[in-house]
Simulated scan of single mutants.
Amino acid sequence: MAAITLFKTIIATCSFFFAAVTSFAAPPSTYNQVQAALPYLDAELTKSSAALYPRVLARVRDGKKNEIFWLSGIRKAGDFYTGKLETAPVQIANVELGQTISVAKKDILDWSYQDPISRKIYGNYGVCMELQALPAEEQLERMTFWGLECKPAK
């Protein structure tokens, strides 16, 4: 139960961070890592012991404007991911908090899920990128505390 509370705290923290930085654009290397690792998320979404709390961070467009949102409860259909909007829109008007929307694979900027057995959190490339700026010992301490794996489960 403590792991679920911790994971929800991490989600809230990450959602707040990415909501505040609506012009966030993943560096090309991070975007490429996220896109290359999507098959691991896809595989978890198809397992009968489904991943806990699957989420994607996606760019949503409204004409010439766009904004970054976390979507939760992800399901996949073809090259599209459908989920519930977790962050309140600030710059675009064609979506609202709690709405279920679909986004194209190319618009996925990050993803995460929690393994139901190990309770490890996979994905979360944005957080992992920030942790790299910390001294190695502190980075390991935070990753261990959060149960974060900065690589896909294989």
Score class of each variant (00 low, 15 high):
residue 116 P to I: 08
residue 125 Y to E: 11
residue 51 A to G: 06
residue 71 L to T: 02
residue 82 T to C: 07
residue 73 G to P: 11
residue 74 I to Y: 08
residue 93 A to K: 14
residue 65 K to H: 13
residue 119 R to F: 14
residue 53 Y to D: 09
residue 81 Y to P: 02
residue 120 K to I: 13
residue 107 D to M: 03
residue 82 T to A: 04
residue 106 K to Q: 05
residue 92 I to H: 00
residue 132 Q to Y: 13
residue 92 I to Q: 03
residue 135 P to Q: 15
residue 122 Y to W: 06
residue 60 V to W: 00
residue 127 V to H: 04
residue 85 L to M: 14
residue 56 V to D: 02
residue 62 D to I: 04
residue 124 N to L: 12
residue 134 L to D: 12
residue 64 K to T: 15
residue 98 G to S: 06
residue 76 K to H: 09
residue 132 Q to T: 15
residue 99 Q to D: 07
residue 118 S to K: 06
residue 96 E to D: 14
residue 73 G to I: 08
residue 119 R to E: 08
residue 109 L to Y: 10
residue 107 D to F: 05
residue 63 G to D: 00
residue 100 T to C: 04
residue 86 E to M: 07
residue 110 D to K: 01
residue 136 A to R: 15
residue 111 W to P: 11
residue 79 D to W: 05
residue 85 L to D: 11
residue 98 G to E: 10
residue 83 G to I: 02
residue 81 Y to G: 07
residue 114 Q to P: 02
residue 131 L to G: 02
residue 80 F to I: 13
residue 82 T to F: 00
residue 61 R to G: 07
residue 115 D to P: 01
residue 76 K to F: 04
residue 57 L to M: 14
residue 72 S to N: 02
residue 115 D to H: 11
residue 126 G to F: 14
residue 60 V to Y: 02
residue 116 P to Y: 11
residue 73 G to E: 11
residue 130 E to R: 08
residue 97 L to C: 03
residue 54 P to Q: 03
residue 82 T to L: 04
residue 81 Y to W: 10
residue 59 R to G: 01
residue 53 Y to M: 05
residue 92 I to S: 00
residue 122 Y to M: 06
residue 125 Y to H: 14
residue 70 W to P: 07
residue 99 Q to V: 11
residue 129 M to D: 14
residue 130 E to G: 03
residue 130 E to N: 11
residue 106 K to E: 08
residue 51 A to M: 01
residue 60 V to I: 15
residue 125 Y to P: 10
residue 124 N to R: 10
residue 116 P to E: 02
residue 103 V to F: 03
residue 77 A to F: 08
residue 124 N to H: 09
residue 100 T to H: 10
residue 54 P to Y: 07
residue 107 D to V: 09
residue 106 K to M: 05
residue 78 G to H: 03
residue 60 V to F: 04
residue 90 V to S: 09
residue 114 Q to H: 13
residue 122 Y to C: 07
residue 60 V to A: 01
residue 70 W to I: 09
residue 89 P to M: 10
residue 70 W to N: 07
residue 89 P to D: 08
residue 67 E to R: 08
residue 132 Q to L: 13
residue 103 V to R: 12
residue 78 G to L: 01
residue 135 P to V: 00
residue 54 P to M: 07
residue 99 Q to G: 04
residue 130 E to V: 09
residue 68 I to D: 00
residue 111 W to I: 12
residue 113 Y to D: 04
residue 52 L to H: 04
residue 91 Q to F: 09
residue 60 V to P: 00
residue 75 R to W: 05
residue 52 L to V: 15
residue 79 D to E: 00
residue 109 L to R: 07
residue 78 G to M: 03
residue 96 E to S: 13
residue 51 A to V: 09
residue 61 R to S: 12
residue 123 G to W: 00
residue 87 T to M: 03
residue 71 L to S: 05
residue 94 N to I: 10
residue 111 W to C: 11
residue 107 D to C: 05
residue 76 K to E: 12
residue 105 K to C: 03
residue 103 V to Y: 00
residue 55 R to G: 05
residue 58 A to C: 12
residue 122 Y to N: 06
residue 127 V to S: 01
residue 118 S to C: 12
residue 112 S to T: 15
residue 56 V to G: 08
residue 84 K to P: 06
residue 121 I to F: 08
residue 52 L to G: 04
residue 70 W to T: 14
residue 111 W to D: 12
residue 122 Y to A: 04
residue 58 A to R: 04
residue 88 A to H: 11
residue 131 L to V: 10
residue 71 L to K: 01
residue 106 K to D: 10
residue 90 V to E: 15
residue 80 F to E: 14
residue 51 A to Q: 02
residue 54 P to K: 06
residue 57 L to G: 05
residue 77 A to I: 14
residue 77 A to Y: 05
residue 67 E to K: 15
residue 51 A to W: 05
